[in-house]
Amino acid sequence: MVRYFRHPMFITFAVFLILPAFIMKLGFMTLAIEVMIWIIFAMGYNILLGYTGLPSFGHGLFFGTGAYICGLIQQHIIAGTWIPILGSMLFCGMIAGIVGLFLARKRGIYFALLTIALTQLFFFIAFLWDGVTGGEDGLMGIERYALTFFGLFSIPIEGILSYYYFVFVILMVSLILLWKMVHSPLGSVLYATKQNEVRAKYLGYNSVLYKWIALVISAIFAGLAGALYAMLMHGAFANPMHWTKSGDVVMMVLIGGGLTNFFGPILGAAIFIAIRDIISSITEHWYLFYGLLIVFIILFLPEGILGYFRVGHASGREEVLEEV
């Protein structure tokens, strides 16, 4: 039982569960929600980077697209919450499925460059296609409609506290799903592909198909995060798809130690957002300090913060705590 309570998953849930009690009055609620959204994004993305070893620098593409699709569905199809969110996930999964047809056959630097080019392409489409995306101004007026459950009852999520707990529940579900996935046969094949793709093929695994699946999974979570972000901000913008921004999620994973630890991206996302917010309130040039931090981590903590403390391992088979 004690082991159970010390589990990083449990700690994460406990922290976010009680956090509002401490930050509500200080006005940090939006920031905390943003952190949870980025955790969902980064944890899903880590399936691709940490477990499958594919360095996409273009996942802002799916985050941004998820935000737009959420708004577009709300404004053109159904003024709700579930359908726009599921639609964003589905659409992002489909885009990943299509670009994955050629991306999954690439590796290393070619893979990375292609993803940058793709996100930049989508950035320009979003930026220039005024009539649909709102262009430079963004797609405004995205709402947080009350959650309805088969017409039986409904829960409003417009208020910041209720939206916080809505995102919190989605975060819990996402993390549990990802945890299960990482420890499943699928997760083991993805990690095998990362380590030694030729051997994986010679065991009979269709490694290209598995890499494609990893890409689609990560895009679905990015789409989910994007949709939640759009509802948080009441708008969708092209910015996250710009190539200079689409790599933020990579940094979160690396800082936290996602390459060697399942929970790395949680810490990474929290630190990234905190630093951005604290330093950017002091100086415009927060990216400079950010760069310094990255250099520090690469020099002294090449496996990220959790990698340094060696809490568990990305293989998913050496966790300090097993029982969940």
């Binding site: 420890h183 046969p185 699928l186």
Partner: peptide
Amino acid sequence: KGFHFLRSTKYF
């Protein structure tokens, strides 16, 4: 069994 994605490998 490589495509199973919700059950831990421990239980196979």
